[in-house]
Design a protein around this nucleic acid. Structure first.
Lengths: 229, 229
DNA sequence: GTCTATAGTGCGATAGAC
DNA sequence: GTCTATCGCACTATAGAC
């Protein structure tokens, strides 16, 4: 699968997510008509992500959000009860989407080397589509309360575990030679994160997500492949 | 060189830096006695870094800074003319220290494989000592004005260039087999950044900077070493 | 050189009209 | 369901006593 194919597939997930946001936050959302609520929520989230990616969530005032989204202050507060809650809503959805797409895409019956390639591609493609969401999540974790921060940490370790499991499977089948699967998974993750954190760098160099995926796969494979075979 | 040796060496640089901060910002610093100014500046910077690393620079109010540092609001404003200037002062010093230590440590006459190891270790050791400074710099770049952001980008690319040069030298001497030196340098940098960005993860797993350095060196070497030799 | 007190601004949040 | 108007508060920054 290349990026263009993945793009189509993930759009379906996006629809699901917008629906879920509405359903799950009905306690905070005063608006009852789903069509109206979903449309405005999408607007609010997109605007908040754009503004936050520019200058950070704290620096974005709700007046900024109101002006840019076209919704009044009063209208905004129909969708959340505080600025902090808006932050948590956005964070939650990012985490959920990651988990959903990553576990859906990886075929557990495949061989470890194939699984590794798929996991790398899927992760990169996902963060490419949701770049702003991931960047936001990444940068704003420290502004969350303790409980939400813990969730964020769990989510990070969960993603890392996917790679640890793949590496372990590869070691057992003697496809990989890896001395420290945990640290190896950790540095793999750092390479994947670089794609959405340092977006400007890759954009400037005109590197596409498929080119980056190919490079990372090649780099990691030449580091972990068992050369005794 | 291991970390403990480096630590001692870098402390000398720290002294220099504190002195430089005072000398260079005499326009903004109203205090004339150097001993007083340097002591208070060190206090302000350290406190600001601690608070910012917890909740971000924007969320840290100057009242927080005043309370935690023990200096009054008025005293704080003797050392900078605005909160934004404080941010820039901190950013500038981080960048300067990076450049100074990295170029000082790397022996350009060494063989590329040795240079690569030294560059990785030096980078990790430096960020270990100045962890809060680097984390701060990393997270707060987007809150800077355009001109300062550009400096930050230059600094990132400059560090990356150090690795590109080493890789190129290694390719010429047939020590390394690297298809894309730019992307390779880029992922090396992402692994090094992970050490100070995800500090909590490595602390939780009780991995020392020397252990991480050894791992990263091994990982990168097995990816870039020319296997035809 | 450092303090306290306060001016002035812009924020998050809400009440009530439409 | 959305708007405008406004409240109370916390902030940055400064002026003037010591």
């Amino acid at each position: 699968m290349i990026f263009e194919e993945f793009k189509h597939l993930a759009m379906i997930s996006m629809e699901e997510i917008c629906h879920e946001i509405f359903m799950e936050n009905q306690a905070s959302i005063k608006i009852k008509k789903e069509a109206v609520a979903v449309k405005n929520l999408a607007n609010i989230f997109n605007t908040a992500l754009n503004l936050s990616n520019e200058k950070g969530f704290q620096s974005m005032s709700l007046r900024d959000l109101s002006r840019t989204s076209g919704l009044s202050m009063g209208a905004l507060y129909s969708y959340f009860t505080s600025k902090e809650e808006l932050l948590e809503m956005i964070q939650n959805q990012g985490r959920r989407l990651t988990r959903k797409v990553l576990t859906r895409q990886i075929d557990v019956n495949a061989e470890p080397d194939e699984m590794l390639r798929t996991a790398i591609r899927t992760h990169l493609y996902l963060t490419e589509i949701m770049q702003k969401w991931f960047y936001f999540s990444y940068m704003e974790t420290k502004n969350l309360d303790k409980a939400q921060q813990e969730k964020s940490i769990e989510s990070e370790l969960e993603t890392e575990q996917v790679f640890i499991d793949i590496l372990d499977a590869g070691i057992r089948k003697r496809l990989f030679h890896v001395e420290n699967p945990i640290l190896t998974a950790s540095v793999i993750k750092s390479m994947l994160q670089d794609w959405y954190v340092k977006r400007w760098k890759y954009a400037r160099r005109q590197i596409t997500v498929d080119e980056y995926a190919e490079f990372v796969i090649g780099f990691i494979e030449s580091a972990v492949t068992d050369k005794s075979n």
